[in-house]
């Protein structure tokens, strides 16, 4: 199964991530986030949140929460080293919080190429739902697969 337009419409189950305060604090540390509402439960609650809120781009990791998050790319014959992130989009429906269990699914919505096939594009839409089945955010991402230099292995 190659990376071509026959993939359009293909759906797969994604990942499931039980959001913990400690994972959110690690994310804050890694991104230099010092706003207390993202790390301090008291500050979050004083701001009206029921727990630490999930920051806007953290959701990207939900779909990666599987034993081998890139195995579908391997199945398409794509070398992970050749993959670049082209575009990323989030449409927010409601906030999520520490304690929520988030799950993703994904559907291929477009595949195209540029530069005579030197760059191939894979566009996927991924709704993320919480433990009640409510969609909290809809993600759309575009991966770019470049041609790797010859003789690299």
């Amino acid at each position: 199964m190659g990376l071509d337009r026959s993939l359009i419409g293909e759906e797969r189950a994604g990942g499931t991530l039980l959001v913990t305060r400690s994972r959110l604090r690690l994310f804050a540390k890694a991104t230099g986030q010092t706003d207390p509402i993202f790390v301090d439960l008291d500050a979050a609650q004083q701001a009206g949140h029921r727990d630490l809120p999930v920051p806007p781009t953290f959701f990207f990791g939900v779909d990666l929460e599987t034993p081998d998050p890139f195995d579908h790319l391997t199945a398409y014959g794509v070398d992970l080293r050749a993959v670049l992130h082209g575009e990323q989009e989030f449409a927010y429906h409601r906030l999520a919080y520490a304690g929520d269990e988030l799950s993703s699914s994904s559907k291929v919505v477009d595949v195209y190429e540029k530069k005579g096939g030197a760059l191939r594009f894979l566009v996927t839409e991924l709704p993320v739902t919480d433990q009640d089945g409510t969609v909290v955010v809809t993600m759309r991402n575009t991966l770019v697969v470049r041609a790797l230099p010859e003789a690299s292995s």
Partner: peptide, 13 residues
Amino acid sequence: FPPDKLRSYRVRF
């Protein structure tokens, strides 16, 4: 802006 006010966010790398 408070995080619950964000409606959409997209970027191109």
